[in-house]
Design a protein around this nucleic acid. Sequence first.
DNA 1: CGCCTTTATGCAACCAGTTGCATAAATGAG
DNA 2: CTCATTTATGCAACTGGTTGCATAAAGGCG
Lengths: 182, 182
Amino acid sequence: MSLPHALLTALLERPCSGSELAGRFDRSIGFFWQATHQQIYRELKRLEELGWITALEPEAGRGRKRAYQVLPAGREELRRWTGEAQEPKPLRDELMVRLRAEAVIGPTDLVRDIESRLAQHLEKLALYQEIERRDFPNGADSRQRELQHLVLQAGVMAETLWVDFCRKAIAVLAADEDMATR
Amino acid sequence: MSLPHALLTALLERPCSGSELAGRFDRSIGFFWQATHQQIYRELKRLEELGWITALEPEAGRGRKRAYQVLPAGREELRRWTGEAQEPKPLRDELMVRLRAEAVIGPTDLVRDIESRLAQHLEKLALYQEIERRDFPNGADSRQRELQHLVLQAGVMAETLWVDFCRKAIAVLAADEDMATR
DNA sequence: CGCCTTTATGCAACCAGTTGCATAAATGAG
DNA sequence: CTCATTTATGCAACTGGTTGCATAAAGGCG
């Protein structure tokens, strides 16, 4: 499970509070790992209990915002986890199940849904490419930046794949539809 | 959630028992939707309670194997679900979290893990291509087969992407390693 | 000042999927 | 025939993630 380690990573990049983490999760790390504020608060408490992080300005009186920073034990744990082997998770996609169902029960409205997905994936692709243009106009200049770039490229590659696949699927499904109406 | 509908699809293709479903899930639909026997038995019971499927030979005496078939209500539900819109699920990948962590805490053993993943993805890619060669030597000849082919192609595309990405990642991480040892 | 909205925090219940274990019938080897 | 193995079924507990709701402080407006 990645959430605790994603939080440690984000807090090492910059110590901050739960709600700020939730915001940052919607960008950067959040491209590949999402978390609701619930998960984040719950997990921060657990990480604190484990002694991996600690709250800054614990009794700052005014304002309930509690910023956390990573303790040496947390850094050590993150290092351990990062080098740990993991099996690649098998593919799992509901759309493929729907396509198999379509194959068995004949034409449905599925193609409409895929058209709308295509639009969404195109949008996300454009977003990622825009970020890439903005943040890495001349590639990456340091190890850290190279790795960040790599993760972003993964996003571009994945969205490109989805765009290609949706187009292929629409071609197949629309051809059927033509035949049906002819 | 797809499991009930994946089961309905599989049972429409051919009525069978829980354990046989578990076996078939390791192929075909299982490329994109896995399920343990536990989930399958639990879900079959639920589908029966809902009146979507029914057990054949309910009191066949010898042998506890219970084969199920889909009832009209189940077929109707599958059709309803297939045309239903679904948001594309956001990407979610632990490896990307690890790469971001690597970027922050410096070199780890991560590259070893990615090398082993590369090997596994190459293996899976070869398997899918082999299946494609065997089952679709001349493309697909019917609507149903076209859709099955499409799903298989999604597998090929996804594994190809992973292979490309692993190679890219190894290049970045290995370059760092060279620098470190130089 | 007093009120409404937004931000930050959190509990509790739920849901889908996994893990560990159990048990009964079928099969097959000695 | 009998015992060990494999196949088929299933319960219970757990885990990670989601949803719905609640509450308290901060900020802005009349």
